[in-house]
Design a protein around this nucleic acid. Structure first.
Lengths: 242, 242
DNA sequence: AGTTGTCAAGAACGGTGTTCTCGTTTGCGT
DNA sequence: ACGCAAACGAGAACACCGTTCTTGACAACT
């Protein structure tokens, strides 16, 4: 779908190769100085080009280059999360393992974010322009929340729709607010499960934004230990408890 | 402390007045076009100045102006949250009201964020430079988490340190990671309470960042209804339940 | 082999933050 | 009341930036 056919001509081949090279250099500059400092002229300089205008043959604008980096970032992050999910296969084990699996996925996402802080900021930080999210990015951006949804339904599958313990009942307007999402899911998906997944997703990235953007400095001494505990406690509070 | 003495000379008075005027114009431009588009030259133009260099008499750099806006943003947000907290005084009512108070504060923070989206992005979005958080901002930035901590200890005061229901025990490393924070609190403050407060704070701003930065578009139809329910359910999960 | 399209280069335009210099204005101390 | 020093706004200048357009060279397909 992304490649209509194999690159037959040498020109096409060189083109997609050079496009990847541009992105690689841009990603390196992004990692060093952040998105605000990424300049097409500097990218062209690092590539050995004498002129920045040459880059416009490959990306129609600077924002388009950033969008490509965002897309790659989503892909890279989702790959890491899915790899952790797969590595922690729970098979037929007891439900406590689902909580461990959740914590493991959380740590995988956190590790990726710590390894690529500027890329994380590009994805989950403030949108730079008037926010232009092309349809291409949606598919990659939704992989993580869908993975979390699958994880939560793992737990649910073990002992059925466990009754809501102390959680308040879901009012109609809240249930209807999920309509666009429920329309794309199996018709018997309980709204409570979707709610739990979305809340886990929300908390996970809220915690990472806080840590990466410095809102926990001077407050928390050992960020990893704190994160491990908050992930575990949140998972338990959302119904993944033993 | 911030004002050493009353502005005796007319020059001083004009100076602080003009400084406020600069911030007002900058805040207006920020609200219209976002932080990236805020330019000193445009601010000078709107102020009737013929030269942007005149602004350097009042702010040493563009980042310093942005920092001043960040500080004001923290103050404005904290004021709104504290006003909502005070308006929902629970007096000696039953614990269910504490949950309502929590939901009310959450809505106040959300309303502020929706009314000042670019200011919110400036505060809780990706830090622009290499992140320079002067000590002045810390005092304002911590007002909201402290308020949430007070709210959670309201609940705790009613029926004492309620036993941890299904929440996992707090391991030593997690408890020690809170040391910098516990050092500034009453010595009998339970670590579980601090943990709950921090998690509520984290979730609240995680949810707002998602909503404001567009990560919930095409997923949630009625953001306010969803937010109300998630706030209520999170409060219950964190121990504010009836 | 000739034509067509792709390519890098370079100049140019309007914009930015920042620095420096230059008269002017203002307030304070004498 | 006067003079000096500090603060002020204006303006030019520097080094960048994204983007557009034109020009000339090279490669590929017919």
């Amino acid at each position: 779908m992304s490649t209509p056919q194999k690159p037959r001509t040498a020109r096409e081949r060189a083109r997609i190769e050079f496009t990847a090279e541009i992105k690689a250099v841009a990603r390196r500059q992004l990692a060093e100085s952040g998105a605000a400092a990424l300049s097409l002229r500097a990218v062209a300089r690092d590539l050995g080009l004498a002129s920045a205008s040459a880059l416009y043959r490959y990306f129609p604008s600077r924002d388009a280059l950033l969008t490509a980096l965002i897309l790659d970032g989503y892909t890279s992050l989702s790959d890491a999360a899915e790899a952790a999910y797969a590595a922690l296969d729970v098979a037929e084990a007891e439900p406590a393992d689902v909580l461990e699996r959740w914590v493991g996925v959380c740590h995988a996402v956190r590790d990726w974010a710590l390894a690529h802080p500027h890329e994380y900021a590009l994805i989950y930080g403030s949108p730079v322009p008037g926010y232009a999210a092309p349809q291409d990015t949606v598919a990659q951006a939704t992989r993580l929340p869908y993975l979390i949804g699958a994880l939560f339904s793992d737990r649910l599958g073990k002992d059925g729709n466990r009754p809501s313990d102390t959680r308040p009942a879901m009012p109609d307007d809240a249930r209807q607010s999920l309509a666009p999402l429920l329309a794309g899911l199996p018709p018997d998906t309980p709204a409570d499960l979707v709610m739990s997944s979305l809340m886990g997703w929300t908390y996970l990235l809220g915690a990472l934004s806080f840590e990466l953007f410095g809102h926990r400095r001077e407050i928390i001494a050992d960020p990893r230990a704190f994160f491990d505990h908050e992930a575990r406690r949140l998972g338990a509070a959302l119904g993944l408890a033993t």
